Amino acid sequence: MVRQHGRVTETIDELAGLVAGGGVVVLSGAGLSTESGIPDYRGPSGAVRRHSPMTYQTFTRDADARRRYWARSHLGWRVIARAAPNEGHRAVARLQRAGLVEGIITQNVDGLHTAAGSPGVVELHGRLDEVVCLDCGNRGSREELDRRLREANPGFDVRVGAVNPDGDVDLADAEVTRFRTVDCTLCGTGMLKPDVVFFGETVPAPRVARCFDMVGRARLLLVLGSSLTVMSGRRFVLRAAKLGVPVVIVNQGPTRGDGYAAVTLDAPLGGLLPALADRLAGDGAAVGGAVPAGAAGVGG
Rank of each mutant, 00 (worst) to 15 (best):
Gly225Thr: 03
Thr55Leu: 05
Asp258Cys: 07
Asp168His: 07
Val79Trp: 09
Thr255Arg: 08
Asp40His: 11
Asp135Phe: 00
Tyr41His: 07
Ala275Cys: 00
Ala152Lys: 09
Ala261His: 05
Ala47Cys: 11
Gly120Thr: 05
Arg239Lys: 15
Leu171Ala: 08
Val2Asn: 07
Ser227Tyr: 04
Ala240Arg: 10
Gln96Ile: 05
Leu224Trp: 02
Thr34Ile: 14
Val109Tyr: 10
Ile80Ser: 06
Ser36Ala: 15
Ala296Gln: 11
Leu27Asp: 02
Thr264Leu: 04
Asp278Phe: 02
Gly167Leu: 13
Leu269His: 04
Ser226Trp: 06
Gly200Cys: 04
Leu18Pro: 01
Gly99Gln: 14
Asn251Lys: 11
Gly289Arg: 05
Glu35Lys: 08
Gly137Asn: 01
Gly88Asp: 07
Glu14Tyr: 01
Arg279Leu: 03
Val208His: 03
Leu276Asn: 01
Pro254Val: 09
Ser226Pro: 12
Val160Tyr: 10
Val263Gly: 02
Val245Leu: 08
Ala218Trp: 02
Ser45Trp: 12
Glu123Asn: 14
Ala174Trp: 03
Arg239Met: 05
Arg234Tyr: 10
Ile104Met: 09
Pro204Asp: 00
Asp146Ser: 12
Ile105Ser: 05
Leu100Arg: 14
Leu228His: 03
Ala262Trp: 07
Ala47His: 09
His113Thr: 07
His5Asn: 02
Phe212Leu: 13
His89Gln: 13
Val291Lys: 13
Ile80Cys: 08
